[in-house]
């Protein structure tokens, strides 16, 4: 009983690793792409729009399958964990980029004027004036996206990554107690997401403009 629970918890460490790595990559890339798009640089916004349309219209599960099973055809030897990280990171990068693009667009025009009028350079304007404001308003939808990513990591089980959902299925078959096993599994997912959400609201409060 205790052993079974420990088994699930060990597996959830893999879920956590998978999620956190993918959150890190997709947030970093997404912010970068979103910022570049918002500042009217050629070509990249078009590519972004194509990929945004793509991930909006295609299931995550299919993306993960596609990456894992078609990589060998391109001569790439990819292990399941790497395939899952690639799939999740790619998929959520374009949700983040869209959030950031919108958030930069929502910074009032006057802030750009003021930053310009002080003679700041492009990167100074972005770093010192626009992003600190944009990222504040981007944080709540960004955390939402992270939570969806954590839950989406369950799809990694279908390509054989050993993580919480894989372990739950194994255990449910072994113990013939699916209700208890999947119940425990749900609690663990919930705990991970709840912690992330708490961290999010803490960060949001810390970053709120002082009034």
């Amino acid at each position: 009983m205790i052993d079974d629970l420990l088994y699930l918890l060990r597996a959830s460490l893999n879920t956590l690793a998978l999620s956190l790595i993918s959150i890190g990559i997709s947030t970093l890339l997404g912010v970068l792409i979103g910022v570049v798009c918002a500042f009217r640089v050629p070509i990249i916004p078009i590519l972004n729009a194509i990929f945004v349309g793509f991930v909006r219209g295609v299931p995550l599960l299919v993306v993960i399958f596609a990456i894992y099973y078609s990589a060998p055809a391109f001569g790439i030897d990819i292990d399941p964990f790497a395939a899952a990280v690639t799939g999740l990171s790619f998929y959520f990068t374009f949700f983040v980029s869209e959030i950031v693009r919108g958030a930069v667009g929502a910074v009032p025009r006057g802030q750009f004027d003021a930053a310009y009028s002080l003679g700041l350079t492009f990167w100074q304007r972005a770093r010192l004036v626009i992003l600190p404001q944009a990222l504040r308003s981007a944080l709540p939808p960004m955390i939402n996206t992270w939570l969806i990513l954590v839950k989406g990591s369950a799809f990694a089980s279908v390509i054989g990554v050993w993580e919480l959902t894989t372990a739950s299925t194994e255990l449910a078959q072994r113990t013939v107690a699916p209700f208890q096993v999947y119940g425990a599994s749900m609690l663990i997912y919930f705990a991970i997401c709840f912690t992330l959400a708490c961290f999010g609201s803490f960060a949001e409060k810390r970053l709120r403009f002082q009034t």
């Binding site: 006057g110 003021a114 310009y116 009028s117 003679g119 700041l120």
Partner: peptide, 20 residues
């Protein structure tokens, strides 16, 4: 142009202070 802007001061109708 950044250099030129830095040598002029402008004050806007809507203040445009940096809220953060």
């Amino acid at each position: 142009n950044e250099f030129l802007r830095a040598r002029m001061g402008i004050v806007f109708q809507s203040f445009n202070l940096f809220p953060h």
